[in-house]
């Protein structure tokens, strides 16, 4: 058990280092912008006639927020403390809205879209890959080719095609948004049904792409498992194909868990762009607007959120991997 704890601690240490690095990158961003960032920001935020008094107030707000009068390392510590306290800064484009609140409003939509699509895509894709690898022959070739095709239509490409075909050409689904324009988000059945209709198309496009990607990865993993001695032995004992596919699926899906965690960064990026395509009111659309408006605090907040989420998911996957696979569990505990 002590070795297991040491394993967890070592892993946690690495992830902490990665997190620190990500935060340092986040921190240095607005400071890399040429010129005095605050002047740039203020001139961007405010245009036209503006009372000098309020201009002055905005200016001092930002100077204090960035702590520009302090040495760099103090600035970094101030930034860290602010982030930990949940003070993620103030948006430029929607001044004086807090970045935290803007992200808080968008996050539920993104989670509702990404979590189920990643899970469903993972499960279906891996099943498909395992069956293809085990069965071989035509099915295998077919699955491989189809998966290659689907996983290679870029996320947003498939999203655009689906949007065009199923919302514009055949108006089966709404052409965008998270709910019908003009209605107010609430928990009534009518609203939820409406939200589900808007959810379907972005969900479908994310699932289709990740099925393909997962199937390819799983097929490759499962090929090694299928030729493993235990599968051959199972056949000689008369185990059914269904049972053996289940063995293969389980054993090959363990590495696939970390595989998924590692590819999460790409998947999240793809999902954010997919949101944009469907004008889905999540983090992706928020990011798109923030970039177009050069809303640096908001961009920073979103990239920080994405880094933390991906790092956390990776860490959890590492632990889960250790818990699920007896071979690894044994190695962690030093049973071998």
């Amino acid at each position: 058990m002590r070795t297991f704890r040491r394993y967890v601690l070592a892993k946690a240490g690495w992830y902490l280092l990665a997190l620190l690095l990500a935060m340092a990158l986040n921190f240095s961003l607005p400071r890399l912008i040429p010129g005095n960032p605050v002047t740039v920001i203020v001139s961007r935020t405010v245009s036209g006639d503006f009372p000098a008094e309020s201009l002055e107030r905005i200016y001092t707000t930002y100077v204090r927020e960035f702590g520009l009068d302090q040495p760099v390392h103090v600035q970094f510590l101030t930034y860290l403390a602010g982030v930990l306290r949940g003070d993620w800064g103030t948006s430029f484009m929607l001044y004086p809205a807090k970045v935290r609140d803007l992200i808080g409003q968008a996050l539920p939509w993104t989670l509702a879209l990404q979590v189920p699509s990643i899970l469903v895509g993972w499960l279906l894709g891996n099943l498909l890959g395992a069956v293809a690898a085990y069965t071989g022959g035509r099915l295998d070739t077919g699955v491989l080719t189809a998966s290659l095709l689907f996983s290679n239509i870029p996320y947003y490409g498939l999203a655009i095609i689906l949007l065009y075909l199923l919302a514009v050409q055949l108006p089966l689904f709404p052409t965008g948004g998270g709910y019908t324009f003009g209605s107010l988000p609430n928990l009534s059945w009518t609203f939820l049904a409406d939200a589900a209709r808007h959810h379907a198309l972005p969900f479908l496009s994310l699932v289709l792409v990740s099925i393909g990607g997962q199937a390819i990865g799983m097929r490759e993993m499962a090929l090694y498992e299928v030729s493993a001695d235990y599968v051959q032995y199972g056949k000689m004992l008369g185990l059914s194909d269904r049972k053996l596919i289940r063995y293969v699926f389980r054993n090959a899906s363990l590495p696939q868990i970390t595989g998924m965690a590692l590819s999460l960064g790409t998947m999240v990026a793809g999902a954010l762009v997919t949101e944009m395509v469907f004008s889905y009111p999540g983090i992706g659309s928020l990011l798109f607007t923030a970039i177009r408006q050069s809303d640096y605090p908001l961009i920073q907040g979103i990239t920080l959120l994405v880094s933390v989420a991906v790092l956390l998911a990776n860490f959890l996957a590492d632990l889960l991997y250790g818990l699920v696979d007896p071979r690894i569990r044994a190695a962690q505990r030093g049973e071998r």
Partner: peptide, 15 residues
């Protein structure tokens, strides 16, 4: 590997 590259790409590109 664990820091999502999209984050770095966005931050650097913006700057």
């Amino acid at each position: 590997i664990t820091i999502p590259s999209i984050v770095i790409l966005i931050l650097v590109s913006v700057s």
